[in-house]
Design a protein around this nucleic acid. Structure first.
Lengths: 193, 193
DNA sequence: GTTATATTAGAATGTATATTCTAATATGTC
DNA sequence: GACATATTAGAATATACATTCTAATATAAC
């Protein structure tokens, strides 16, 4: 009952994502989002409790998009594939990559994390932590603090480092960095498998 | 002639730096800086043309502080020392490190870079680029695009990646990362020297 | 066709801050 | 001591947004 919606929630998230990727999170004003969609300001608030909630949805979408394949590789025990997932995903998802790797959560969601979304964020974090810990155990046997640090470094930090410079320039990371990531992976994690 | 100053320009830069490191660049309002120093708002504008100019000074101070020893090591041909400078500097300069590694220039200086400071920024950038290129030439002979990429990766990107996770947590980077940085350096740059 | 209501529309409001302005206050120079 | 002016003081102004509000509109249910 009631009038049919003219826009979909997704459209607003898309618009916010696009604006954030193109001009930075500060450019994501409610008015700008509404303009991009062609909707009135009120329609944004009809769907999202606040700007923070909207931006949180943007963040969640991006993180999930990245983690999906990363964790899948990890769960199959394919560490190299997981490490190389970063440059590959970045090449395929420029806008999302800019958001995930160029900004911090607090730049998108400026206030406290919206209560309704806290659980989803926590679940995502737990899944990533678990995936990493499992992989470290499989690789090193036990998995003490230092084994986990080493795994995070090789699987996340180094691929990020290799890629972020190009994202800043708005360019696709060149193929050569895949080699650096692999070399570093073997150096840090050892050769086995 | 005229009344003696009650505050020094440096005090305002110090205050802005401290606030940015503790609470993020958005917390650096002119009122907050004035409060921190114990000066009136007008005194800030008496010294700095705008918030952007003040923040630019903060940025310049931090960058110079970091680059000094980094370039010195590089010019002496000590690549490992240069690579390890990042974790060492971070341990000694927590506040500066938070600003340099946690935020981007555009988060500090939100508008166009103040005209009067453009030249200083450019000079700094040139000096860093030159130092890197020189070192790549010394190490690889020629120094094509790819040699420079490789050098940047080993000397800057990887040390940054190793360190930034701890900065986010407000912790000092543990000693173990120095080992990762060195291992990666050798893997990427080769063993010689 | 009437009614209830989901949704569109966009104007009005409130707030936070950068910046500007006007007025006091010291201090070096004469 | 009087003057010129660098500096302090802080109130007033302007702007940019997030958020709220009031009013129209279309459609499903009856």
């Amino acid at each position: 009952m009631g009038r049919n919606a003219q826009f979909k929630n997704e459209e607003f998230i898309d618009a916010a994502l696009k604006i954030a990727a193109d001009h930075g999170p500060a450019a994501v004003t409610i008015a700008a989002v509404a303009r991009e969609v062609g909707a009135p300001v009120g329609s944004v608030y009809h769907r999202f409790l606040s700007r923070d909630v909207l931006m949180a949805e943007v963040w969640l979408r991006v993180v999930v998009s990245f983690q999906e394949a990363f964790l899948a590789a990890l769960e199959k025990g394919e560490g190299i594939e997981a490490a190389l997932h970063t440059p590959r995903w970045v090449r395929q998802h420029s806008a999302e990559a800019r958001i995930l790797l160029l900004y911090r959560r607090e730049e998108l969601v400026t206030g406290a994390w919206p209560e309704e979304l806290k659980e989803r964020v926590l679940a995502i974090k737990r899944r990533l932590d678990g995936g990493i810990r499992n992989y470290a155990e499989r690789t090193f046997g036990k998995a003490g603090r230092e084994d986990i640090n080493r795994t995070v470094f090789a699987l996340i930090d180094v691929p990020y480092a290799a890629v972020v410079r190009y994202i800043r320039l708005g360019k696709k990371p060149p193929r050569s960095i895949d080699g650096y990531i692999m070399q570093t992976y073997f150096t840090i994690m050892g050769r086995k498998k």
